[in-house]
Every structure is written in structure tokens, then in C-alpha cells.
Write a protein that binds this DNA or RNA. Structure first.
Length: 805
DNA sequence: AGCATTGCACTTTTT
DNA sequence: GTGCAATGCT
């Protein structure tokens, strides 16, 4: 039976020992081990620690067997660390706990129950790339314009529909604009293709378990009994499907403990619903709510600074952060001339703190809003010889060679996996080109077969004998390993198989530095397979399990503690981590907050929470930086510092580089109180360079956003108090690309005929095509594409453009 | 079929 | 500046 032994006095004593070292509120959270508990916990409040002790306590006090404990975390890394710590606390007894992300735990559940929902246990997990390829094909088939309705946006829509447990039929019924109609037309066929391929996308890994539980109450009852205690970390980032799963599983025992911080909700864009945490009390009326408000991580200044950030938001649970830590240093604001300047300043600062302050490299983190920002930072660090580690971007499992190798393995395990087959059928090239693949596709579609099945009978598919021969050879190779898969150790199988695919040989033949790195990467992958397979000596794990697991590995999960390097990552990836010194970079309008988010009050609040998350990663020193100009799409664009900086109170929390007090301009983004226009925000530029603005009064009240009050000259004043003197004599130096214009033609003369679409001739660049016109009168500028030099933005006032048709 | 060249769209954030 | 998709040449 699933009932633990009665606790002895010794057990209770042992359990109580686990409370030592926790503060009274944390102890209360641990002791409240029955029923529904919500722990509202600020950053750095030791929430994961509390959760860990709670689990250990349950085991030590014999309230549950480890196997009766389910802990759902946000990253695999968090689960791994929690497992290790619980084991440290209660010893080897802790084996058998279910810990992991929602996705990894429920993919394991689906594996066990696959047959009940008509899948095989070796199902593939499609990543966004696979999903988009599949959608692209379906769009082509249906004649949907893939330029107008991109596979990416369709995928996003289908994903959020699935997150909300909406069927294709339900979605179609709701469709009321062309975009939704297109999505509705693709959603059903997309699901069918997944099922045919014995594949699941990320959302299916949550949606299918819910369906499974609904259709098979006995299965649900089984898991309800199995998991007597359920813990969910980062509850504010759960979506509707995750919420439903938790609710279903907790229905029996009602022992559910969720931990979260509504102020740190930053994943709404992928369906996370902050409402889950806000309404916990409604779902479980008996629930105990505990607030962990003491911060152990950061200095007082940083904690107060973070508090000032989040005050800009309207909808937050009431929470008072405090700390007994040192007062600390004020937050430092760095202003840079350019992106390059910004990264060089950061590099110098890191070096300085490392050399003079003795702070090890791994105590530094540089955070940014978009992955694209990492490049200049990397460059500066590399130049300065500072070791760094980048999280995200093109992570290990996203590299082409790794994806190719994985596709081979996936195909052998699950031959129905069309996406994998398409990926590797001609990698390395083996004479199976587009036409041949089209032939197979057509044949497969006509007969309702998978591509793999079609490839078994290539001559029936109407291929030429040469093409058929090539396909046969490929099919034979895969088939040989597919048949070995069930009874061959995973690592042995993978090694031999990849060897024979020719993947390694083709990289060796290429013999360039890059190809040799790729070769190394594949070997690293093979080592990972071996490590995985042999991790449990009693029950060696299979290749199929490996493949499902690695599909769900995020890059943060691979972040090792042992490496002494500076960490570069997005603000999103930094959640849950902490560093002695943190740089939040790119504090500019349009970037952070992103231009699109600034238009929408809800999104703007999420950006602000993201800032809050970033700032609270810092233990001792927090730097913020922004650049006056930044490269975007290969072009230098000027930037204005982020509104977030100006929202902060006049409290002495932030200093500029020179040590001067930072004076925010609070009214910068205040909206005027006039018109009552409908619709979204619309900024219009008039001839004088002024702005006009449209919004509803409600939006205005909620958003506090707007550009019309910006004083362009304000930003030209340097932060340095001593820089009142004529600023920057420094002229455009080497790195900056400069364009020479030919002055002379009056704007009116040139302006009239230059309209988008026409061909023009330029004295230096030759013939080009006008892409766009901005501004009027003196300020008018044309974006012109020159085949030889690329895209240029030219002021019509200066550039002599002759229209030629 | 396979390679090279050009054109183009792209920058949110991710399990 | 990048990476992919379409195009065109061998």
C-alpha cells in the first residue's frame, strides 16, 4: 500500500532538525505540510531552499515515501539541484522522487501510457523548427501565402490555442479575422500530421496528459494516489494546461504547495497565466498563504531599487521586501556612445573589479533583452581575454550537426518521424534531391503513408531507377539500425550508426576549422548518449528515452557551476540565478522595453517585471547601461534611454559613473489629456519633427506611455556633470561606416518623384530601388536598395537621386 | 543533382 | 550583420 509507516519519535526529531537554519516564516512553510499552501516569495527569499526542506521534512517525518512526492520546477537544473539537496538532507532514502519540469515529468507519463492515447512510447518530440517546417509544407499544399502568414506566427497561434485546451473545431468557431481563419484551416491537419508521425509538440506534452486523464479516470486515480504531495515552483509562470494538470492531480489529497512571485511573471508570451497564482485562494479556499519577504541575496540598496522598479506596475500582490544585509553600493548607471562603447565599458569594469576587487569571473553576469545583443559583448570580452560563457542563443542542441545526428537517431527509433527523415535523407548528400523527395511526398500523401513507408518502395513511387537506388540504400541503412535498436545498448547503437551515416566522414573531408568543431560536437553528443545510458547501472536507459529527454533540455540546464567564466544571457534565462555583480544592458526605449511592448499596457508591465527580475539577480553590485546609438539590421540607429530609468524615485539609489546622483525625469512618458481617439497607439511624425498621438483615455491612464513629451535635447546632455563643456569632439572613428553624400539639390526638386518602388541612380552607388520614404520637407529621407552596396538611408536634401523609372 | 550567388527578412523573450 | 530560400549555372 501507499501508506507510509507510522512515524516514530525518532523520525520526528530527525525531521525537526531539518528546520534548523530556516527563519521562522520558512519554518512555518515547512510545517504546513498538509493541505493547500501558497508561498508568495520575493526574490532571494530562499523559496527553493524552503521547498527543498519541506520535501525533506515530509520524507524524514515519514509523512510520505519519496515516490509519493512530485516536484515540478521551472528548469531541469532546478530539479537536479533540488534532488541533490534533498538527498543531502535525508540521505539515500530520497531516491524515487518525481522531480522535473512539467514537460519532462509528463513526457515520462505519456511514455508509460502511450498506448492508451494511440501513440507509441517512442514518440518524437517536435521542436519549434520541426513545427514550422511542417506548417510551411501544409501552407504550401493549401496555397497559403507563407510571406503574409508566416509559419512562425501560425505556430504561435496554434500553440496558444493548445495551451488553452482549445480544439481545432473550437478554434475555427471563434475565428473572426483572416489570420485566425488561416490558422484554423491549418490547425487540424497539423495535428493529424503530428499523430501520423507519432510525434508531439511541446504543448501536446501537457495537453495529451489532460486528455488521457479525462478519458481514463482509472489512470488519473492511479496518479492521484501515487503523488500524495505535489509541489510547484515558479507557479506564476504556469499556463492553463499546467494549471489543469495540477488541479486534476491534487484533487484527491489536496496536498498542493505552490511557490511563486507574481512580480516575477515574465512568460505570458508563451501562455503563462499570472491569474493562476492570483486565484489560488479561490481554487483552494482552505489554503494557507505564507509570505517570504526577507531577502537574503542582495544589499539594501538593490532591494530598495527593485522595489522602486516594481512600483511602476499597478497589478501586484501586496508584498514588502526587506533585508538585513548591508546597505551596499548605489546602483550604477553607465551611458555609452554606442553599442561597442557599452560593451567595452562593461569589459573594463569587469576586469577592474576582477583584478582589484578579486571577484572571480563566475560572479559576473551580463544580461540583455534580446539574443542579438550578445554579439558586441562577446567581441569585447574576447578581445579583452576575459573568459565567458553564453547561455541560450544557439545552444548545443540547436546546432545543425547535432540536430542532424539526433534526427538520424530519432528516425531509427521512430520511423514515422517525417520531419527527421526530411532532415537527413540527403545529409550528407547522397543523390536524393528535391525532385526525388517530392516524388516520395506525393506517393506518401496519395497512399496515406509516412515518408519512411514510401521510401520502402521507391520504384512504386515513380522514381527513376537511379533515384530509387539511392533511396533504397538510405532506407536500408536506417532499417538496419532500427531493427537493432530494441536490443542494443543505446551508446553502442548510436556510435556505430552515426559512423555509418557518413556524417562524420563528410565533416572530416571538409577539413575546415569549423567542420572539425562540428565533428567534435557530434562526439560530445555520443558521449552524452553513453553517459545517459550508463547512468543507472541496474536499468540501462534506452536511446528513445535519451531523445525524449534531450528535446526538453534548455541551455540553462547545461550551465555548470564549475566553470569560472563570466555569464552572458538574456534576462529571461537569468531567472532563478544570482551573481555578485550584474549588468543589465541595453536600457533603451524600443529595446527595453521593446517598441512593441511599449504600445500595450499589459506587455509593458511584463517588461517591467523582467527588469525587476534582472535587477534582483545582483547580490552586491548592479550596473545598468544604455547606448546612444545601436546597430539594428546592420544599420546604426540612435537610441533614447529607457523610461524605466526615469520612473525611479528620487531616493538616492542610483549614481552615474562619475558618482553624481541620477535625476530622473518623471514626466517623460506622461500622456497629454486631450483627444479621445479610438484604437491603438499611433505616433505620427509631422513636418517639424513633432509628434501627434492617438489613444483612448483608458489606455492613457493605464499605459503612461508616450513620446510626445520627450525633449530631444535632454538626452544630448551627458550624464557626466563635468560634461557641460562642449561635448564629444570625438568624431566618427574608424569602426563606424560613413557615407558621403553629394550636396546641392534642393529638397523640393529631388523629393517629388522619389517614391517607393521607383528606380533611381546615385552618383556613388549607382542604380538602386527606393524601398521607403520617411519624413517630409528638409527631413525627407529615402531608404534605397543598391544591388552592389546594399541598403542605404539617404537624406533627399543631400543625395542627388535621379529617377529612372 | 549539386553548387554558388543573390535576395530577403529578420531581432523579442522559450519549455 | 546573419541565415535561409529562391534562382541560376554547371
Amino acid at each position: 500500500m501507499f501508506s507510509p509507516e507510522a512515524a516514530s519519535g525518532a523520525d520526528e526529531k530527525r525531521a525537526d532538525e531539518l528546520l534548523e537554519g530556516l527563519n521562522p516564516v520558512q519554518q512555518e512553510a515547512v510545517r504546513a505540510s498538509e493541505g493547500a499552501v501558497m508561498i508568495i516569495a520575493g526574490p532571494g527569499s530562499g523559496k527553493t531552499r524552503t521547498l527543498t526542506h519541506r520535501i525533506a521534512y515530509l520524507i524524514a517525518a515519514r509523512k510520505a515515501w519519496p515516490s509519493q512526492i512530485l516536484a515540478l520546477t521551472f528548469t531541469n537544473k532546478a530539479a537536479r539541484e533540488m534532488r541533490t539537496r534533498v538527498t543531502d538532507l535525508v540521505g539515500p532514502d530520497a531516491k524515487g522522487m518525481w522531480m522535473g519540469t512539467f514537460h519532462s515529468v509528463f513526457s515520462r507519463v505519456l511514455r508509460r501510457e502511450a498506448d492508451k492515447i494511440g501513440f507509441s512510447r517512442d514518440f518524437s518530440i517536435y521542436d519549434t523548427d520541426d513545427q514550422e517546417r511542417l506548417l510551411r509544407e501544409l501552407m504550401l499544399r493549401q496555397g497559403v501565402d507563407a510571406k503574409k502568414y508566416t509559419p512562425r506566427s501560425i505556430r504561435g497561434r496554434i500553440s496558444s490555442a493548445k495551451n488553452q485546451m482549445m480544439t481545432p473545431e473550437a478554434y475555427a468557431a471563434l475565428a473572426n479575422d483572416p489570420y485566425m481563419e488561416v490558422t484554423a484551416r491549418l490547425y487540424g491537419p497539423y495535428n493529424q500530421r503530428l499523430r501520423k508521425a507519432n510525434a508531439m509538440d511541446f504543448d501536446d506534452l501537457l495537453a495529451w496528459p489532460i486528455r488521457l486523464f479525462e478519458q481514463h479516470p482509472d489512470v488519473l486515480a492511479d496518479y492521484q494516489r501515487r503523488w500524495r504531495y505535489i509541489h510547484i515552483d515558479e507557479y506564476q509562470d504556469t499556463n492553463k494546461a499546467q494549471y489543469l494538470l495540477a488541479k486534476l492531480l491534487a484533487a484527491e489529497h489536496q496536498n498542493i504547495c505552490v511557490v511563486g512571485d507574481d512580480a516575477q511573471s515574465i512568460y505570458a508570451f508563451r501562455g503563462a497565466d499570472i491569474g493562476n497564482i492570483l486565484s489560488f485562494q479561490n481554487d483552494y479556499p482552505e489554503a494557507t498563504t505564507i509570505r517570504l519577504e526577507q531577502n537574503y541575496r542582495s544589499t539594501q540598496k538593490i532591494v530598495r531599487f527593485a522595489d522602486a522598479i516594481i512600483k511602476g506596475n499597478t497589478k501586484q500582490l501586496d508584498k514588502k521586501l526587506w533585508t538585513e544585509n548591508d546597505e551596499g553600493e548605489p546602483v550604477r548607471l553607465m551611458e555609452a556612445l554606442s553599442e561597442r562603447d557599452e560593451s567595452q565599458k562593461i569589459e573594463r569594469t569587469i576586469r577592474d573589479l576582477h583584478v582589484r576587487g578579486g571577484i572571480p569571473w563566475k560572479q559576473f553576469a551580463v544580461l540583455y533583452r534580446t539574443n542579438a545583443q550578445s554579439r558586441s559583448m562577446e567581441e569585447s570580452l574576447r578581445r579583452g581575454g576575459i573568459p565567458y560563457r553564453m547561455v541560450g542563443g544557439t545552444s548545443f542542441y540547436q546546432r545543425k550537426e547535432i540536430k542532424d545526428a539526433l534526427a538520424y537517431l530519432r528516425l531509427a527509433v521512430n520511423p514515422s518521424d517525417d520531419a527527421s527523415l526530411l532532415r537527413v535523407i540527403n545529409t550528407p548528400t547522397r543523390g536524393i534531391g528535391g525532385k526525388t523527395v517530392d516524388g516520395l511526398r506525393r506517393y506518401a500523401a496519395e497512399h496515406g503513408l509516412s515518408l519512411w513507408q514510401a521510401a520502402q518502395e521507391p520504384s512504386d513511387a515513380g522514381l527513376s531507377s537511379r533515384a530509387a537506388g539511392a533511396v533504397e540504400k538510405f532506407a536500408f541503412l536506417v532499417a538496419r539500425f532500427a531493427s537493432k535498436a530494441p536490443h542494443t545498448p543505446a551508446d553502442e547503437l548510436a556510435r556505430e550508426y552515426i559512423q555509418e551515416t557518413g556524417l562524420l566522414q563528410s565533416l572530416r573531408d571538409e577539413n575546415t576549422p569549423e567542420s572539425l568543431v562540428r565533428l567534435e560536437n557530434i562526439h560530445e553528443l555520443l558521449n552524452a548518449v553513453a553517459e545517459f545510458a550508463q547512468a543507472d547501472s541496474d536499468a540501462p536507459r534506452t536511446l528513445s528515452e535519451f531523445l525524449q529527454e534531450v528535446s526538453l533540455v534548455s541551455d540553462v540546464d547545461r550551465l555548470g557551476e564549475e566553470e569560472n567564466r563570466v555569464t552572458l544571457m538574456t534576462l529571461h534565462a537569468s531567472k532563478g540565478l544570482e551573481f555578485k555583480v550584474v549588468f543589465v544592458t541595453g536600457m533603451e526605449e524600443g529595446l527595453f522595453p521593446l517598441a512593441k511592448a511599449a504600445q500595450d499596457p499589459t506587455e509593458l508591465e511584463e517588461e517591467r517585471r523582467l527588469f525587476y527580475v534582472g535587477a534582483t539577480r545582483a547580490e552586491e553590485i548592479l550596473y545598468l547601461s544604455y547606448a546612444r546609438t545601436r546597430y539594428r539590421y546592420g544599420e546604426s540607429t540612435s537610441a533614447v534611454r529607457s523610461r524605466f530609468l526615469d520612473e525611479l524615485d528620487g531616493d538616492d539609489l542610483m549614481r552615474t559613473e562619475s558618482g553624481a546622483r541620477f535625476a530622473p525625469r518623471k514626466d517623460r512618458f506622461q500622456l497629454p489629456d486631450d483627444d479621445g481617439a479610438q484604437g491603438g497607439y499611433r505616433v505620427e511624425y509631422d513636418a517639424d519633427g513633432g509628434y501627434s498621438y492617438e489613444s483612448t483615455p483608458a489606455q492613457r491612464r493605464a499605459a503612461k506611455s508616450g513620446y510626445e513629451q520627450m525633449d530631444p535635447h535632454y538626452y544630448r546632455t551627458s550624464l557626466r556633470p563635468d560634461a557641460a563643456k562642449p561635448a564629444r569632439k570625438k568624431k566618427a572613428s574608424g569602426g563606424e561606416r560613413s557615407v558621403e553624400y553629394e550636396p546641392g539639390v534642393a529638397p523640393e526638386a529631388a523629393g517629388s518623384d522619389v517614391v517607393p518602388g521607383v528606380k533611381v541612380v546615385h552618383g556613388t552607388f549607382g542604380e538602386g530601388k527606393v524601398i521607403a520614404i520617411e519624413g517630409k520637407g528638409e527631413r525627407a529621407a529615402a531608404t534605397v536598395h543598391f544591388p552592389r552596396v546594399g541598403q542605404k538611408k539617404l537624406k533627399l536634401k543631400f543625395a542627388r537621386l535621379r529617377v529612372i523609372g
